[in-house]
């Protein structure tokens, strides 16, 4: 298998792909970006926390891209066991019949391209759980 690299550094690839957050050791606030300190309590130390891969759609939109011929995409906020995650809803039709508020979803990964060195970048989204 070709080398792989995650689209973002908080996506862990392998046999059971999942997201990992920086969790404040003082107040428990979770972040997906590189941190200088905690926005909630100004704490300075963080630990890694695995995020559950099942979730529920708390909000979504369906963006019509400017470029003709490109497919609409479905940005959403997913509640993964109390931690909010940002992703697109994938593997379903991008319309309000197939994507609904409160629907159950699960994490999935997919290749997004290969660079000149042959490394494949892998992104993530959430697909309907049922």
């Amino acid at each position: 298998m070709a080398d792989q690299i995650p689209l973002v550094d908080y996506l862990v690839l392998g046999d059971s792909p999942h997201l990992v957050a920086n969790e404040c050791t003082n107040c428990g606030a979770r972040y997906f970006d590189r941190r200088n300190a905690c926005a909630s309590c100004s704490g300075l130390t963080f630990t890694k926390a695995d995020i559950v891969t099942d979730g529920e759609v708390r909000a979504f939109t369906i963006v019509t891209p400017w470029m003709p011929g490109t497919a609409p995409y479905v940005p959403a906020v997913i509640d993964c066991g109390g931690t909010s995650v940002r992703a697109n809803i994938v593997n379903t039709e991008p319309d309000d019949q197939h994507v609904t508020l409160g629907m159950k979803v699960r994490l999935t990964t997919f290749p997004i391209g290969t660079d000149t060195a042959g490394t494949e970048a892998v992104g993530y989204g959430f697909e309907p759980a049922n």
Partner: peptide
């Protein structure tokens, strides 16, 4: 985010309407 690509449209949207 240690991103290897632009994220607009890949991980949600920052566009105001969305």
């Amino acid at each position: 985010f240690g991103a290897v690509s632009g994220l607009e449209g890949k991980l949600g949207t920052d566009m105001m309407p969305g």
